[in-house]
């Protein structure tokens, strides 16, 4: 008999706790951003497609569905770390097949050579190129993500990727980097 009482008591307890937990799960549900949004927020939004997906969001979706996290060269190591942190996996080195991490660059059109073909305009994922057919094109540096997609379509190869020049305003107090001049 005692065994039955014990079983009944345990069963009732289990039911009660289950109900409490179930209630708590519904009542105190934390509304987190969907995973894809969180991943997308980490990605650098260059929309360069180097990962093999047509933009950052599609890659975010792919990661959420189990793709590797090391396919983003513009984001580099820091992005991989953040993604690893979010996804709860070990950080991996960048996959070389998708490119190398590089200094930040922006596209630059040599304007006197531009023939106004609009090909680069169509390639630009963020509409950072201004120009019209048969008119000279130019790049809005502040909008350029450095994705590289405009370089290939150019029929006359007048687009270069140039590293951003260091500016005093964005200098990072790296005292070691100051070239010391030797005087007499």
């Amino acid at each position: 008999m005692t065994i039955i009482y014990a079983l009944i008591a345990l069963g009732v307890l289990a039911l009660v706790f289950g109900a409490v937990l179930g209630f708590a799960a519904v009542r105190f549900k934390v509304e987190a951003d969907p995973l894809v949004e969180q991943i997308d927020a980490i990605l650098p939004q260059t929309q360069c497609g180097q990962c093999g997906y047509p933009g950052c969001r599609p890659y975010a979706e792919a990661i959420a569905n189990g793709d590797e996290i090391n396919k983003c060269p513009p984001g580099g190591e820091s992005t991989i770390k953040e993604l690893a942190n979010l996804m709860g996996v070990e950080p991996k080195p960048l996959d070389d097949a998708h490119g190398q991490e590089d200094v930040k660059k922006v596209a630059y059109i040599r304007e006197d050579e531009c023939i106004g073909c609009t090909k680069c305009i169509h390639a630009c994922p963020v509409d950072a190129i201004v120009g019209a057919t048969r008119q000279m094109h130019t790049i809005i540096i502040d909008e350029c993500t450095g994705c590289d997609l405009c370089v290939d379509p150019c029929p006359v190869d007048c687009i270069d990727m140039v590293p951003l020049k260091p500016k005093a305003e964005s200098w990072k107090w790296d005292l070691e980097s100051i070239p010391v001049k030797v005087v007499e």
């Binding site: 997308d40 650098p44 939004q45 929309q47 950052c56 909008e143 200098w171």
Partner: peptide, 20 residues
């Protein structure tokens, strides 16, 4: 300086996303 850069980059990424 690092915080400033990160904020700028974040802002830029956000803008790039909108434009995209």
């Amino acid at each position: 300086a690092e915080i400033k850069t990160q904020q700028q980059e974040k802002q830029k990424a956000e803008q790039a996303k909108l434009r995209f």
